[in-house]
């Protein structure tokens, strides 16, 4: 179970990464964030976002509703 949950279902580009970035700002290093989204671009975008920001992508599940777990570095 991740430390923080974020539901981005129903949100479109660029909102999921905007919400992730806003939520991550309130978190401490080492905490994990679980995000669910159904934006088709989410998987690619979350991967790019994590790489750019230097955080750690622990899991990424594909499908209609995608689920990502990110650890704040």
């Amino acid at each position: 179970m991740a430390d923080v949950q974020l539901d981005c279902q129903g949100l479109n580009c660029p909102m999921p990464i905007v919400r992730i970035s806003q939520t991550m700002k309130t978190m401490h290093a080492g905490q994990t964030l679980e995000v669910t989204a159904n934006d088709p671009a989410f998987s690619a975008d979350v991967r790019a976002w994590v790489t750019k920001m230097g955080h750690e992508l622990l899991t990424l599940e594909a499908g209609g509703v995608q689920r990502a777990v990110i650890r704040k570095v």
Partner: peptide, 11 residues
């Protein structure tokens, strides 16, 4: 604005 807000979210 989508690019701008996306870029801001990317730090």
């Amino acid at each position: 604005f989508i690019i701008a807000t996306g870029a801001a979210a990317m730090g």
